[in-house]
C-alpha cells in the first residue's frame, strides 16, 4: 500500500532523508521512532507530496506520489501533530466541509455518527472548534479518515501533547481502522504508543532508517533499550 524506495531528500548540503526503504501493507501500522530532525516528518511530507524527493520514489497503491499527487491524496487521510480545523465552524461543519472536498456527501446523522464513533462527545458536535481540546480535534481527524474511507493514514506525532486517556482512545481508534485494512504510517516520539499500537516499528536517526522490526519481536523494555542505544551512539 505504502512503499518508499531509496527515498532521499536533501536541502543543499544537508540530507534530511537518506535512501529510505520501507513498505506498509494493508492492516499494518508502521511507527517511525526517532529524535527531532531524524527525518520522520520529512518522510510523511514526501508521501503527501508536500515536498519533492531529491531521489527515489514514494508510492501509494503502486502510484508514484510525485506523479499522481491528486490521485494518491484521494486515498489517504493526514493527521498532523496539531490538527488545525476552522475554529469558527463546528465539528460537524468542519467534517462536512472536508468530506465535501473529496466529493463525499453524508447526511447530518451519518456525520454525527462518525464523530461519535470517533470518540467525540455528543455535546461538542455542534459546538465551534475554537472550544475543542487538541484531543477532540484529533478525533475529528479520525472521523474524517473514516468518512473519506481512507485506505492510507499518515500521522505526524498525532498523540504528542495528549493526556494518557485521550492518547489511549486515539490508539484504540487506530486499531479499529487497522482492522478495517487501513495502512498507517505514524511518526512518533512515544515508545509506549508505538509498541502498543504499531505492527511494525522503525528507528530513524539523522535521516536514516537504522533498524526496523515487527513490534511483537520486542518487549517494551527491549524497545526502550534499543532506542536509547541508537540515540546515544
Amino acid at each position: 500500500m505504502l512503499e518508499a524506495t531509496d527515498l532521499t531528500k536533501s536541502y543543499g548540503n544537508f540530507t534530511a532523508l537518506k535512501g529510505l526503504n520501507l513498505s506498509v501493507k494493508e492492516g499494518e501500522i508502521f511507527c517511525l521512532l526517532g529524535a527531532n530532525g531524524a527525518g520522520k516528518s520529512t518522510t510523511i511530507n514526501l508521501f503527501l507530496n508536500f515536498i519533492a524527493p531529491s531521489s527515489g520514489t514514494a508510492k501509494i497503491q503502486s502510484m508514484d506520489v510525485s506523479k499522481h499527487a491528486q490521485d494518491t491524496r484521494q486515498l489517504l487521510s493526514y493527521i498532523p501533530e496539531n490538527l488545525k480545523l476552522y475554529p469558527n465552524l463546528t465539528g460537524i461543519e468542519n467534517l462536512d466541509f472536508f468530506c465535501g472536498l473529496g466529493g463525499r456527501t453524508h447526511t447530518k446523522d451519518q456525520l454525527e455518527d462518525l464523530l461519535i464513533q470517533s470518540g467525540l462527545q455528543r455535546d461538542f458536535i455542534h459546538q465551534r472548534v475554537s472550544k475543542y481540546s487538541k484531543g477532540m480535534r484529533q478525533k475529528v481527524g479520525i472521523a474524517l479518515a473514516r468518512a473519506r474511507d481512507a485506505r492510507v493514514l499518515l500521522l505526524d506525532e498525532p498523540t504528542s501533547g495528549l493526556d494518557p486517556k485521550a492518547s489511549n482512545e486515539f490508539s484504540e481508534l487506530l486499531l479499529e481502522l487497522k482492522n478495517k485494512g487501513v495502512a498507517t504510517l505514524m511518526a512518533t516520539h512515544d515508545l509506549f504508543r508505538a509498541k502498543d499500537t504499531g505492527t511494525h516499528i522503525g528507528i530513524m536517526k539523522e535521516g536514516t532508517l537504522i533498524e526496523q522490526f515487527e513490534s511483537d519481536e520486542v518487549s517494551f523494555q527491549d524497545l526502550e533499550k534499543l532506542y536509547l542505544k541508537h540515540m546515544h551512539n
Binding site: L48, F50, R73, P80, L85, L101, G102
Partner: peptide
C-alpha cells in the same frame, strides 16, 4: 489548515 486542505486532494 492549508496542509489539511491540500492533503484532501
Amino acid at each position: 489548515t492549508l496542509r489539511l486542505l491540500i492533503s484532501q486532494g
